[in-house]
Design a protein around this nucleic acid. Sequence first.
DNA 1: CAATTTTCATATGTCTGACAATTAATGTTT
DNA 2: AAACATTAATTGTCAGACATATGAAAATTG
Lengths: 244, 244
Amino acid sequence: MKIDPGKPDDLSAQIAGAIRDAIVAGTLIVDERLPSEAELAEQFDVSRSTVREALKRLAAQSLIRTQRGATGGAFVNRLSFEQACSQQITTSTLLLSMNAVSFGTACEARYALERACAPLSAARRTADHLATMRGEIHRQSQPELSDEAFCASDVAFHRALVDGAGNPVLSYQLAGAVEAMQPLMNMITFTARDRARIIDLHRGVADALEARDGAATLAALTALETETQALAHSVFAARAKKRP
Amino acid sequence: MKIDPGKPDDLSAQIAGAIRDAIVAGTLIVDERLPSEAELAEQFDVSRSTVREALKRLAAQSLIRTQRGATGGAFVNRLSFEQACSQQITTSTLLLSMNAVSFGTACEARYALERACAPLSAARRTADHLATMRGEIHRQSQPELSDEAFCASDVAFHRALVDGAGNPVLSYQLAGAVEAMQPLMNMITFTARDRARIIDLHRGVADALEARDGAATLAALTALETETQALAHSVFAARAKKRP
DNA sequence: CAATTTTCATATGTCTGACAATTAATGTTT
DNA sequence: AAACATTAATTGTCAGACATATGAAAATTG
């Protein structure tokens, strides 16, 4: 585990890279303790500050955790699905907002991915997943709900659908696609009629899943995508007319 | 943008969080320059070291970039698809290796997601995508290829399929699922007969895409998944027998 | 002897101050 | 006007110090 003492600055990035490589390669295993900051400083022949900056970089990616005290130090962190999900959600959200991804593109990706879950979810969804979905549908039908809360409930509904597939890898990969849509959805103002249509389509999805009918689930999701795209299109068109 | 001066240490994490929130909320926009380290230290009432550790955390997530010199400083970074992809790949890879995800689970997720791309890719793939896939198939048929190189080529083939959908969001979301399979695939030793079967199935996928036939692409992918799962199953079963 | 308290060594968290290196803007000279 | 030197601002790095947390060993106590 060495670094190039040559030209480029940013020693902390090099050190972080070296340690990261060791973790990825399996040289450092989960829960193993890294040398103390002082020892690392000596090994890499840099100051403690530089080592600390390197460790902070790794901590930001949840690759290590640190503990104070006599038996403390930096430990290789077991990356949990939960941590990975939340990281992916913030990354996805930023990616969409910073690159001016169109609603249509994001929506297409989201529904394409959800359709990938449909057959699995129809086969494996538990009563719990179905209950969550029904509960969200019920919440969505309360007229006093704010648009933002309506979108949040929509996200919860879709997450239940994805989780129903019973494949944690799939749930992880889709978390970003599902959640990152929320800010985009929040740009839409829903009329009561809009909400009623969406709720109807949600009910269709839930019914198909209850019947364990994969094909019907697919069809229901496609109908939901069509409706969502049309709704967004009309809202954005109206807004463009108002403020040209 | 304030921090709680109360109990918890890890001021650098709090500061990083505050700045991250400002970026996500849009208070800080792309390419905007943050205050200098000295100014931030004063604003947050901490030392410059602490500010630096916070900035390194953000840099590790590609949220900022830093530049030295008179007009230098920390700038809000436009998160590119490329950066986001490479981050997601390392996260996905680590997630799978650290959590002992079974080959079957990962493989199921990967093919479910790729099937989501099939109809779009059949409709939109360019000649370039097809050429890449044919090229990889050709490479795979060279018998002197190492198992590792064969897997790498397999990944390249699948990435071309995904990219063919012409949806950058989709490509980003699937990058992790496709690439993170490589270490798992590398655990398999392929016989010449195994390779031939896989190449045949790859050819089937490419043919279906060439014909712009979404349904056929789906079927070809499903056949490929079945073959892959069966192959992995037999390899692992044989290994378990040898070393019980 | 067992339980509790104290002490202590070790480690991270933070601060201060300094210097090196880089870079754009500014000033100076030819 | 162009080439060169100076300067100011800013990050990168270092050294040393102190604060704080924490487990383990040592001392104390019932």
